[in-house]
């Protein structure tokens, strides 16, 4: 039972790190710079949030499969088959959690009064220093929300993971797929235990986040 738990934590952690970097970077670039086709990019990033996970999984299968655009290149160049490995589960978790990270980071950046960044410019700061010292710290509460929600979404990912990583015990079986398998095979006690763990874990994460945000001074302290 602990195998799927540990694998889920590993996959969700790695996926959240990638979601964090790409989410924050894309939110900053698309909302602070003049980017051609901004709406198209935003729609593409947000799409996995509203598409059924099986559709996202299907697209990923087309990309990562043996004959997929990326999958075939990886096999040809490195002899590495990514499909039905835990790496594929990380990619699936990353894709489905990215919209949550992106939307939270975007809202956080848009919430910042542009006068702060303008003032920093008149004081001689470079764009990079402004981002590190003003923009990012002020957006931090929103970014933390994004990280927690992205992690919860990643750890609970089922549909797309099942399609690209399968449900191989000890290799790609995550908590959600293990619950599905336990129910299918009538192993109710294991299903109950995993369901309980996931519910409590997600509850504690969201509850702690809400408490932290309540306590935190929104003026940036």
């Amino acid at each position: 039972m602990w195998g799927p738990v540990l694998l889920s934590l590993k996959i969700a952690s790695i996926a959240t790190i990638f979601s964090f970097f790409f989410g924050v970077l894309l939110a900053y670039i698309l909302n602070r710079k003049c980017v051609p086709g901004k709406n198209i990019w935003e729609t593409l990033i947000t799409l996995p949030m509203i598409l059924p996970p099986s559709v996202t999984g299907y697209f990923l299968l087309m990309l990562l499969g043996k004959r997929g655009v990326i999958g075939s290149v990886l096999i040809d160049l490195f002899g590495f088959k990514i499909i039905f490995t835990w790496y594929a589960a990380v990619i699936a978790a990353c894709i489905v959690s990215l919209p949550l990270m992106y939307q939270n980071a975007k809202a956080a950046f848009l919430n910042i009064d542009p006068a702060y960044e303008k003032a920093a410019k008149t004081l001689g700061s470079s764009e990079f220093r402004i981002f590190c010292t003003i923009t990012f710290p002020l957006a931090w509460p929103g970014i933390i929300s994004g990280i927690v929600l992205a992690f919860c979404r990643a750890i609970g990912e089922f549909g797309a993971t099942l399609m690209v990583a399968g449900n191989i015990p000890g290799k790609t079986q995550t908590m959600p797929t293990a619950i599905y398998y336990a129910v299918e095979t009538g192993n109710t006690s294991e299903a109950n235990m995993l369901v309980m763990m996931m519910t409590i874990f997600s509850f504690v994460l969201i509850f702690t986040l809400n408490k932290w945000l309540e306590k935190r001074n929104y003026l940036g302290k």
Binding site: D113, A115, Y116, K118, A119, A120, T122, G124, I134, G220
Partner: peptide, 17 residues
Amino acid sequence: QNRNIGYVFQNYALFPN
């Protein structure tokens, strides 16, 4: 950044963090 012109904004824009 290189104009060396000081600016006090209407709402002061003091960095809240």
